[in-house]
Amino acid sequence: MAKAPLRIAVIGAGLIGRRHIDCVRDEPGAALAGVVEPDQRVAAAVGETGVTVRRDIDALAAAGPVDAAIVATPNAAHREGAMDCLRRGWAVLVEKPIADTPEAGAEIVAAAKERGAPLLVGHHRRHHDCVAVARRLIAEGGLGRLAAVSVQWAARKPDEYFAQAWRMSAAGGPVMINLIHDIDLLRHLCGEIVGVTAETGSALRGGEVEDSAAVLLRFADGALGTITLTDSALSPWSWEAASGENPGIAAGGQAPYRLMGTQASLELPSMRLWRADHAGADWSTPLECETVPSRRTDPLPAQLRHFIAVARGEALPLVGGEDGLATLVATRAVIESASTHKTVRLGGGPENQPVGERIG
Rank of each mutant, 00 (worst) to 15 (best):
A76Y: 11
E37V: 00
G29Q: 12
D182T: 13
R19L: 07
S235E: 04
A147P: 01
T340I: 03
A82G: 02
P38D: 10
G349N: 15
V109W: 01
A31H: 04
S284I: 04
L316N: 08
W274H: 15
V92W: 01
L304Q: 06
D298G: 02
G105W: 03
L318S: 05
D39A: 09
G324D: 06
E48D: 06
E336K: 11
G144H: 08
L146N: 01
T297M: 06
L216R: 13
L186C: 11
G173H: 08
G321M: 07
E240L: 12
A333R: 00
V194C: 13
Y257Q: 09
L287H: 06
G142E: 06
S337P: 03
L346C: 02
G222K: 13
E245F: 10
L325W: 09
C23L: 06
A45K: 15
A198P: 00
Y161D: 02
R54G: 02
E290N: 02
V94Q: 04
A4W: 04
N75D: 03
L287A: 11
G349P: 00
A30R: 01
A233W: 10
W274G: 02
A154K: 14
E210N: 10
T197P: 00
G356P: 02
A132H: 11
D231R: 02
V24W: 01
H278N: 05
E107Y: 02
W274P: 00
G14A: 09
G116L: 10
A302I: 06
